[in-house]
Write a protein that binds this DNA or RNA. Structure first.
Lengths: 335, 335
DNA sequence: CTGCCATATGTATTCGGTTACATCAAGGAA
DNA sequence: TTCCTTGATGTAACCGAATACATATGGCAG
């Protein structure tokens, strides 16, 4: 490995000058600068980032904590963070939490140990209190797709209440009045917000949500299947089913198919997220889209500006709205 | 930030001793050890990984270069790497290449600059020659899902020839004889290997592949759609269509649906990969599965053992076999 | 009691950079 | 000519740990 010392010797200057050529070229005389650059080129010198980070007490890197790497939901947000930071010359490094509170803690700290200048945390499992304490201690960490009212300015998220309301309004506009829903785990704040929005939207039309038509799912396909079966078994009639994510909607469609229930003729199904499975289902899933890439990008930029102290975050959008993507699983309710 | 120096002062020992307590507890006297541990606990000390990496000239981490974070294909392999390395106490850090040769180079070097002990590279875009040179220079780097015969022991991959042959054998066993295929871009070695296997498998049954029934796709859904349209337009009859990945199979099914061609009654469709879209399509896609998590895990372990010099890699499986996952898109050909 | 060895701990250097401060030379103003 | 300013470069400390080597302590054999 070639070090800055070797470059400096070859070029007949001090290491300080080489360092300047790399980080602050304009303060170096043009002749020396070119000579040093030539040597760097010739030796194929590349600065050791570890040493640089240590000396400069900054890593020009933002860390990201997500549940896992294998689902598109997290992948898209991570991609959003990475592409946005790339534009401002920052790197991204991600660590997975395995969807446990301990994993979230460990990943977060581990990123900090690596001297990430900021970290973007997607946490489903840590309690509000603990998050608040951690955010207080880590002034450059931000929350991804989670809202903590004590630290609202450190959160970048989808407005889930609005998303739930939108779902209600859309289904109502299609003439549905008996609406069922499959939620995520109730411990997730998303679940409660979407439910709250759903209630609001229904209330506007004078509809109240029948508690028997609310089933708890797990955000996975299997949970969607069993929850749907459960709803169907209650024998309470409903014409539309709002699932809190697309995977569960896929499960719902599967259960309907197995029971010979036609979608959307007999039951309309509405998903949430708009990840790729939505467009692969048959019929294609109508869903509430959340702009995951944009949300990730905003979170990355927020962490970056907190880290660099740039006030550039003023004006940054941190709350995002969901929108309906109409495909083929919702149709007008029979009059 | 609390440093090792502060801990050492509080505990009344030297920094060397604190360092030992952390990395080599058994050589420290039990009384001092406990005292130091108590101080570490009380102060909430966490070793600065950057400093540690610099001093020890190792980072206990393996880097991974992949195209992007948003597709399950890469996500699964990355997950495989991460989980496997976690078990041996190593960390993983990933960087995306944006699917360009320059991006692959940059990501690779950037990981090296961070002193990753090894790196797992998924490269579609670098030429064999350049890869060979880079692998020579980086004795702890390995190739993921790519085969370079000059560095066979540094590659972990699916046997694509076997995969192609398996596809042929399976379709033949279902009575198909007129078989079409949609490949990936021809510059990818996977494409050529799968095609070679397909030829081999067909040849065993005395069948030759009609060049007009080979269309080039792009590994994306859109490419699958247009390639299918193209194949259909040639008017040459075929009863089965082998797509080189699941996304293109999804596109193929879409085109068939639009043209009113029933799958599998009129045309059987076989995919490749077995990522989640496969099970969401209707009917569910029969496909050639590649064990992406396992492949990723093996690559991670290989890089790790090259890095640590452990001979543990002897006996490590580095070539993986594809297998058929039967679902609903392939049926017996009409006699 | 002496000497030797094993164990426990400290000292000081090192990793590869960055950066505050010192130094030096050249040019311009008085 | 002299002094001061400005720009270019060097010197040396420092970032926070790891570790080779030196040293101190205690136990035991002879």
């Amino acid at each position: 490995m070639v070090t800055i010392l070797q470059v400096s010797r070859q070029a007949g200057v001090s290491t300080a000058t080489v360092s300047r050529v790399i980080n602050n070229p304009e303060v170096v005389g043009i002749r020396t600068r070119e000579r040093v650059q030539e040597v760097i080129e010739r030796l194929g010198y590349r600065p050791n980032l570890v040493a640089r980070d240590l000396a400069s007490r900054s890593s020009r890197t933002i860390g990201v904590v997500i549940n896992n790497f294998s689902s598109v939901y997290y992948g898209l947000m991570l991609e959003g963070v990475e592409l946005a930071l790339r534009k401002v010359g920052y790197k991204t490094i991600a660590e997975s939490s395995q969807a446990t509170s301990e994993g979230e803690r460990q990943a977060w700290f581990s990123l900090l140990d690596r001297q990430c200048d900021g970290v973007v945390v997607h946490s489903d499992n840590l309690e509000d209190d603990e998050l608040a304490v951690l955010l207080d201690r880590q002034p450059t960490s931000v929350l991804l797709n989670r809202y903590l009212k004590s630290h609202a300015d450190r959160c970048v998220y989808l407005d889930n209440v609005q998303g739930g309301r939108l779902a209600a309004e859309y289904l109502i506009s299609k003439g549905h009045r008996r609406i069922a829903t499959i939620t995520g785990p109730t411990k997730f704040y998303q679940t409660n917000d979407r439910l709250k929005g759903l209630h609001q939207g229904l209330a506007q039309a004078g509809i109240t949500l029948d508690p028997d038509l609310v089933a708890e799912g797990d955000f996975h396909e299997a949970g969607g299947e069993t929850a749907t079966a459960h709803l169907l078994d209650t024998q309470k009639p409903f014409t539309a089913l709002f699932c809190h994510n697309d995977e569960m909607a896929a499960g719902a469609m599967e259960t309907c198919r197995r029971r010979g229930i036609r979608v959307p003729e007999e039951i309309s199904i509405l998903g949430f997220d708009d990840v790729n499975v939505a467009s692969h289902l048959t019929p294609k899933l109508t869903t509430v889209r959340q702009p995951l890439r944009e949300i990730g990008a905003a979170a990355g930029i927020l962490a970056h500006s907190l880290a660099t102290g740039e006030a550039a975050n003023s004006g940054l959008q941190t709350v995002f709205e969901a929108e309906i993507v109409e495909r083929a699983t919702v149709m007008d309710a029979a009059p």
